[in-house]
Structures are given as C-alpha cells and as structure tokens.
Design a protein around this nucleic acid. Structure first.
Length: 925
RNA sequence: GGGCGAGUAGCUCAGUUGGUUAGAGCGCCUGCCUUACACGCAGGAUGUCGGGGGUUCGAGUCCCUCCUCGCUCACCA
C-alpha cells in the first residue's frame, strides 16, 4: 500500500460498512496475522512468542454475542502483543462437537422421515462430513467479519487427520501408562441422545419431585418393610432392601426376605453401614444395582444380581438378568409414564404408604436437557487422579493463574474431588475408539494404527463401536494444533507453551482443567500461564442470551447497524474483570451507544485534526527543541505519558517472569475496561477537549509555532490511534494511514506499528493546569448566572494575594487568547484586579479572577453560596485540625500521611482566608 | 448439604498494603445547532458504601453476626 498520506477528503460521516471488508482484506493480503516460527526466540529468533489458542466453536455454530465477546477479548490481547513486538499467534479452529453435530444431521434425517440407522454408520458419517465441509467454515468467516486477527493459515479442526492422529496417540499413551481402562459400571445415560455422558455433562438441577413410600411384605408373612424412593418404576429391578446394621427398627429382620410387589420376586434384607443413612426416609433402602450408581456399589459389595429393566430409549423392558420382572402391561412404556402406572398398581396392591413432596437434584443432559438415567454398561474411562496432581500443583505454584481469582478456588475444589472420566460415547460422529476386540481369542488390542487381524491369534479384529468424548480431542488443543505428536514440529517448538487462554467459566472443568492436565500429561508442561475467564452476555433481566430464549443479539446485525468497531468497543468497555455484560436485545441503539458514540467521536477528531494538520509531513517530535514547546504541548505530552502508563498497567504484564507469577503481578493485567477507559479519556477528554482547542489559533497563525502544534497533534493522535488499535482496529487504521508522519516513523498498518512508549522528558505541567482551572471556573460562573453563551464578558486577574503573582500574570498573558476564545471572557492580566463589584473566582495558586457583573450578579445569592462553601470548608478544616491535634494520630500514623495532612491544613487555611474575605466583601459586615 | 463470591449514585462497575472531600461510563436535569462532532459541547444533581456489632487515632477497606442474591460441587434413596 502507498505510504503517502491519503489525499482523499474524509467524509463527514464514518461509514464502516464501506471500508471494513476492504481493510480486512488488506491485512490478510499483507499477512500481518501470520506468525513466523523462525522469529520465535524458542527457535533462535529475536521475538518473544505470544500465543493464544482460540476456544474452538462448534463446527455447526453460528456466531452469537458470546462468540463476539470471547473473540473480541482474544483479539484485543493478541493485537496488543503484536504491537509490543511479540511474535503473536492467535490460532483459530473448530470443534467437531460430537453430540451437537450428530443431532443436527439426525434432525435433517428426521425431516426426511429417516433415522441414522436407516442410513447405516458409513453413510451417516459421510453425510455429516459433507455437511461440515459445506457449512463448517461459516463461523470462521463470521469471526473475520468482526475483525479477528487470527492466523488463518493455521486453522485447525478436531476431526482433521492431523488432530485425529493426536487423539489416537493420546489414547494409546494413556493406555500404555495404565491410565485408561474399561469399566463395567453405572454411568449417566441420555435416552434421547442414546449415549453415555461424563459427570460434567450430566448437570444437576433442583427439582420438586416426590418421595414414594412403598411397603414390601416379608415373604414369611410376618410383616413388612417400608422403603422410600423417588423413582418407584425402578423397583422392578430391586434385588434387595438394605438397612443400617445398628438400626433397632430393622436389626431383627436382616437375613429375612421380602416379596417385591408387582414383580413378585423374592429379595433379601441386607445390612450395609456405608450405603444407608438411618435418618433419611424410612431408613430402609431399595437396592437397584443396574439403575443407580450408589446401589451398584452396594450390589457389588454384596454380590447381588443386576437386572436391567429399562431400554436404551428409556422405556420399560426386560433386559439383562431381568427375567419377566416387568409385567407385559408395562413393557415399552416410557419411564415417566411407567412411574405413574407403577404408583397406581402399588395403590391397588395397598402397597403405597404415602407420597411426600421432595426436592432433590436431578441430572440432565447438558445438550438436550433430558433427565439422565443411570445405566449399567461397559465404558472406557480415564483415571484422573494422577493427571490431576500436576494440574493442581501448577496453580498452587503459580505457574498458572486463573483470573478472576475466585475461580481458582473452584478449580482446586473440583480437582481435589476429581473422578474418573467416562470417554466413551455411543455416537457415530467422532474419533472411533482405537481398540479392537478379537471374538476368537478374546484379546483386546489398543493400537495407533488400524488393524484387521488379532495380533495374538490372527483372527478377525473388530473395532470398538463407540467414539470418544469430543473433549478428549479438545484437551489436546494447545499442542495438537501445533503439530503434536510430532515433537520435531517447528510450530510446537516455537509456540508451546502458549500464553493466555480466554474462555467462559462454564467450561472450566470440561475444557480448561483437562487441557492443563493434558499439557502436563503429554508435553510435561503447562499449556498456558494465564486463564482469563470472562463474563456472560446477558439481557436487561440478567438472563443469559440464547437463541432458544429469543433474547439474543446477532453480532452481524450490530455490525451492519453501527460497524464492527462500535460492537467491539461496547463489549470491551463494559467488561469489568469477571463481570457479565448486559445488553438490551430490544434496543440495540441504546445498548451499543457507547461504541457508536466513541467511534463517531474518534472519526470527528480525526477529521478535524487531519484537516488542520494538513497533508504536509510534520516534524518528528524529537526534532523539536524544548524551548519551542508551549505549556499546552508539554501538558498534552505529559497526559499522553500518563495514558500510556495507565494502559500498560491495565493490560500487563503479558507473562510471568521466569515462568512463575510473582505475588505482586499475580492479579494484574487484562483489565480491559480500565485500559479502554484510559485510552478513551486521553483521546476524548484531554486531546480533543483541551489540546485540540488550544491549537486552533496557533495553527491558523502559521509560522514555527504552527509547525510545533501540528507536530504535537500528529504525534499525540498517532499514539492515541496506536493505543486504541486493539479495540477498534478498523477506524484507527483508516485514520492512521492518513496521518502526515514521515514514512520512516511508520509502517504500513497501525496493526503492526509499535506500541507507544512513555517519553520521560515530559513531566506534569502545573501552569497549564492553572489555565484549565480558570477556564472551568469561568464556565461554571457563566452557567451559574445564566449568561448567554454568545455574550462576551471581561474580568481582571488579581494576583495581590497569592505567592505566584508574577508567574500567574505571565501565564494569563500568554494564554489569554485561548482562554478568551473558549470562555468568551477577556481576562486582563495586569494583576490589579479592578474596582467594580463582581464575582470572584479563587484560584488554587492564590490569585483571583474578578468578574464584574454589575446588574447581573445577585449579591445575595453569591453571598449565600460563598457562606455555604466557607461553612463546609470550615467543618472539614475543624476535623482536620482535630486530627492533627490528636497525638494518637500524629504519633501513630505514617509520617507521609501526617505530612500530607499538614500540607492540606496549610492549603485549606489559606483558602478559608480567601473565602472569608470574599464573604466580607459580598455580604457586608 | 459442602466450597466460594458478591451486595458502593437510577443501571453496570472501579476503589491498590485501613489514611479521612468515595470515582468512571451510561442514564437523568439545565443551557447551547460555538464553522470536527447534537452519536456533540458546557454546566448540574444523586451515595446513612446491604443491616447490626467490634478492632483502630482513623473502616467502603480488617473481624464477628444477620439478611439478600449469585456461582460451583454433591450417590441422602
């Protein structure tokens, strides 16, 4: 692209729609998002790598505000680091999302009146693959639309051949290390998705159910025992009733048998101290080993049979070991309908004692919300305890920090109670489990490569039908995407470990914790040093946005209305650490006003500034000697220093020193709203509101001073645009490329310009602060007296009382033109005050501004106001003096605090004198 | 039920190791179309810092307690 400042006139209105796509294409064409592993220090280059791997969205996903927020945060961070000179890599990709994607295709099939079983496995997988290859890039294209500066040359996909290889390697390695095993136990079963779920995928939710008390008669007719259950239909699979061995109510019955109503099966009364709480319910527990995890444990302990009475679909059936327990009239009935019927049957048998209302936690499928059924089956599990240890230690040792801090406790709490991970899914869409069974000799083979024959007996080998949990591929993401298991991979060397992981708290366990475990298990190193958990996008009632609830906002709608930058600015500015973002889906205008307003303001600042600075290249700041700078120049350059410092403090440090977070830095950085506010305040409230105003006449006046003002303006705006680029990359680039700055001081795009540095030459500028104080006071006075905005007034500077008289006179003499222009008030700077009665402005320097307002001023009102001010000050001063008279304070408070209080006392006392004088002159005696 | 967190201006949130006049954005009120911007400019109002108790010379900040929300984990059938 051309280096010449754009000659084109900036249109009065910023039109994002007409420029965003073209700008993004320029960035892509220039390859500014593409990371180069040879530049990474780890590969002998001279740059620190800075890497973020994107939480891969589902391959079937469509962009929503959650993605918008998540990816904007990552983009802001990576753009910041890119400007700071890091070899920045933001690695994008998608996730094959087993259950979700399979559901999409099954729904399609249902529309055609078919099921996946009609197609068969191969055809189903082929169809799904086809669907994904057609639509799978949608969300990634949408991410481009919102400006995401990902390295698209490295786009990954969990079901790609490369990542599938990683999955298999991981499985085999863990198996070799004895950390993967096949277990026969009760797992969570979704009867709609027809698959098992991990503990994390079966979410608890509180529900009001019922506790059914059912009487089981003793077989010998000598009485009965009443059990309590929430799922009476499962009684058909009962194999025993357990009581506590010390329970006096039942002690004598242990060893006797009961006749199970309806099923008419004889079952024993057993004693179990672990599984029975005598205080709950009736103190007698029905044991249903095949349909309850706890009962399974007891069943195993007591070597009880484990009949299955539910089909995979959740209907009543006589399954394994069930004989004819389920009567024919219940066969094929859905479990919830069966519950009602069983209760009715028990009523008829006079076996139902009572029904109590009972709130308890019921597990639901996290994908489809179906009530999860505990089900006995064979599944593959990962032994988690050994994997959790280093993951726990890494956080304790501060190799990894989690922001906001409170999530660390949640993380630790979860890992300490970790349970084995069921990784088998009875789906067709996913990584097929790399295990082969030989029906001839019974050999089980775990293999990196597909096998056709049993390595032991040569008989035909049959691969496990199941696929792996999608998260089993996700937990490898930080290194599988970089080439693992090829340890010689250049990318892996250059970019692992990564730096920040940005996601929502919902997947802290599903993904983040497991990734950390995976990092240690397969790479021997933590995958990142910072986990940044951002809030959730909610509506005005604080309800999480979702398509199904209809309270969502489409980021692309927002983009069409206000532009990408407005969208990005709004969410980043509103994103306090860990705080949720509230947006109103019914009023986009209002919701995105902060971003839209800011972008418009920035555009107008740019328009004005570029017009005034003109197209002739300005001198670099370094070429301007100190004596050419005026108060306003020094002031704004100091304010810029402060803004840079605030942005840096809010954003960084980017990484821990020596791999471990120091206590002092453990909680700092990534305060994106603070960073945004610091940059906004500089460009809007300081550069535009004050400095820009102060340069108007200087630039119009021409000459050397004009060149100085032009140079300072260009420099400050250049820096401001750089500070803002990560948040609003489009408009900053549009404006920045038009700045008339020498070619050698810039690059091609602001997106890879250097992050601004403080210039210690510029310190605080109290004389310009005095000017601002005077201007503010005059403005306030004009408003107080409702002086027409157009009316010019006159005032006198009275320096007789202050210690800075001559300085103040020269300040007001020099800056008079500026003051007068923006306040329409001429201030005579001769220091004499003047004789007319008027309002008095007391400046902190000790000088006064006397504004004669004969006929306008309301002496009584002015008197009242001043008296009130004096009274308030007097009260504060009294308290202050009381403090300073208190030895308890002066002796025990730190010296600097006491000194500050004494200084304040001097200032307040002086001001009290000023005010007292003012009261006397205004109010008479 | 276990663990954790929050309650500060109408709303969303900042408030560093306790330091004494508690801040920002948005919203609200008043006046202005001042030749970059009314998506703007200027001015203004608003808080017993959830309640109560305590430690301290001093508490939004530390301790106790109560109340109210939220998150997270959990096999009380």
């Amino acid at each position: 692209m051309t280096q010449t400042p754009a000659q084109t006139e900036l249109p009065p209105q910023y039109d994002p729609a007409s420029s965003e796509a073209a700008l993004y294409k320029e960035w892509l064409d220039a390859g500014i998002f593409t990371a180069d592993p040879s530049r990474s220090r780890r590969n002998g280059g001279d740059r620190k790598p800075f890497v973020i791997v994107m939480p891969p969205p589902n391959v079937t996903a469509v962009l929503h505000m959650g993605h918008g927020l998540n990816n904007t945060v990552q983009d802001v961070i990576i753009r910041w680091r890119r400007m700071c000179g890091d070899e920045a890599l933001w690695l994008p990709g998608t996730d094959h999302a087993g259950i979700a994607t399979q559901n999409v295709i099954e729904k399609q099939l249902a529309g055609e009146g078919k099921t996946r079983f009609d197609l068969g496995r191969d055809a189903f997988v082929a169809r799904t693959t086809g669907f994904v290859s057609e639509t799978g890039g949608t969300i990634l294209e949408q991410l481009k639309a919102i400006g995401s500066s990902c390295d698209w040359t490295r786009t990954a996909y969990t079901l790609s051949p490369e990542l599938s290889k990683a999955v298999r390697e991981a499985f085999v390695q863990l198996h070799e290390r004895g950390l993967i095993y096949r277990g026969h136990r009760v797992i969570h079963w979704c009867s709609r998705c027809l698959t098992s779920l991990s503990d994390e995928e079966a979410e608890h939710s509180e529900e009001t159910g019922a506790l059914y008390h059912v009487s089981y008669p003793l077989t010998d007719g000598s009485g009965s025992i009443t059990i309590a259950t929430t799922r009476p239909e499962t009684m058909l699979a009962d194999v025993a009733v357990a009581v506590h061995p010390d329970d006096e109510r039942y002690k004598h019955l242990i060893g006797k048998t009961l006749t199970l109503p309806i099923a008419n099966v004889e079952i024993p009364i057993i004693a179990d101290a672990e599984g029975v709480d005598p205080a709950f319910g009736t103190g007698a527990v029905k044991i249903t080993p095949a349909h309850d995890a706890n009962d399974f444990e007891m069943g195993t302990r007591h070597k009880l049979p484990m009949p299955v009475i539910l089909s995979p679909e959740g209907t009543m059936a006589n399954g394994v070991d069930a004989g004819s327990r389920v009567p024919s009239e219940l066969l094929g009935i859905d479990r919830f309908e069966a519950r009602e019927r069983v209760v009715q049957m028990l009523k008829h048998l006079n076996a139902l004692v009572k029904i109590e209302s009972h709130t308890h936690a019921v597990r639901h499928c996290y994908r489809c919300d179906t009530v999860v059924e505990p089900r006995l089956s064979d599944q593959w599990f990962v032994k988690m305890k050994p994997l959790a240890e280093p993951a726990l230690q890494a956080v304790r040792d501060r190799k990894i920090r989690i922001l906001p801090e409170r999530w660390e406790a949640v993380y630790v709490n979860w890992l300490e109670g970790i349970r084995d991970w069921n990784i088998s899914r009875q789906l067709w869409w996913g990584h097929r489990i790399p295990v082969w069974y030989c029906d001839a000799c019974g050999e089980v083979t775990v293999s990196r490569d597909d096998i056709a024959n049993c390595p032991k007996c040569g008989g035909p080998a049959r691969q496990d039908e199941d696929v792996l949990d999608t998260w089993f591929s996700s937990w490898l993401w930080p290194f599988s995407t970089l080439g693992w298991p090829n340890k010689e991979s250049v990318d892996l060397k250059a970019f692992y470990p990564t730096d920040d992981l940005v996601t929502a708290p919902e997947i802290l366990f599903f993904w983040v914790a497991r990734m950390i475990m995976g990092g240690f298990a397969f790479m021997g190193e933590a995958p990142f040093h910072t986990v940044y958990l951002h809030g959730t996008v909610r509506d005005m009632k604080h309800v999480k946005m979702s398509k199904s609830l209809g309270n969502g906002i489409d980021p692309l709608d927002v983009r069409a209305l206000f532009g990408t930058d407005a969208l990005r600015y709004t969410v980043i500015a509103g994103l306090g650490m860990g705080a949720d973002v509230m947006l109103d889906p019914t009023d986009l205008e209002k919701s995105f006003a902060p971003g839209r307003n800011f972008v418009t303001k920035l555009w107008n600042i740019g328009r004005f500034l570029l017009t005034n600075v003109g197209e002739e290249t300005v001198q670099p700041l370094d070429a301007i000697s100190a004596d050419r700078l005026r108060r306003a120049d020094r002031w704004i350059l100091h304010r810029l220093n402060e803004a840079i410092a605030e942005c840096d403090a809010a954003l960084g440090p980017a990484r821990p020193r020596d791999g471990v977070w120091a206590e002092s830095e453990l909680r700092s950085g990534l305060r994106l709203s603070e960073y945004t506010e610091a940059a906004r305040r500089f460009v809007w409230n300081e550069l535009a509101d004050w400095y820009l105003e102060s340069t108007k006449s200087r630039i119009a006046g021409g000459g050397d001073d004009s060149d100085v003002a032009r140079a300072v303006l260009a420099h400050c705006f250049d820096s401001a645009l750089r500070l803002l680029q990560p948040i609003v990359p489009f408009i900053t680039d549009m404006l920045w490329r038009r700045l008339p700055i020498a070619a050698e001081d810039r690059g091609d795009f602001v997106g890879r310009a250097a992050w601004p540095q403080r210039n210690e030459k510029f310190a605080a500028e109290p004389e310009f602060e005095l000017v601002r104080e005077a201007i503010n006071a005059v403005r306030q006075l004009r408003a107080d007296y409702s002086l027409p905005p157009g009316e010019r007034i006159h005032a006198h500077l009275d320096t007789s009382a202050g210690a800075n008289g001559s300085r103040d006179q020269s300040v007001f003499a020099d800056e008079g033109e500026f003051i007068s222009r923006i306040t329409r008030c001429e201030i005579s700077a001769d220091g004499t005050g003047g004789s007319e009665a008027g309002a008095t402005i007391l400046l902190s320097s000790g000088s006064k501004i006397v504004v004669p307002l004969a006929g306008v001023i309301d002496m009584e009102k002015e008197c009242r106001k001043t008296k009130a001010e004096l009274e308030k000050l007097q009260n504060q001063l009294t308290a202050l003096e009381g403090r300073l008279d208190n030895p308890g304070f002066t002796d025990r408070a730190p010296a600097n605090v006491v000194a500050a209080e004494r200084q304040k006392q001097i200032e307040w006392t002086a001001r009290r004198e000023q005010l007292t004088q003012k009261v006397i002159s205004l109010c008479g005696s």
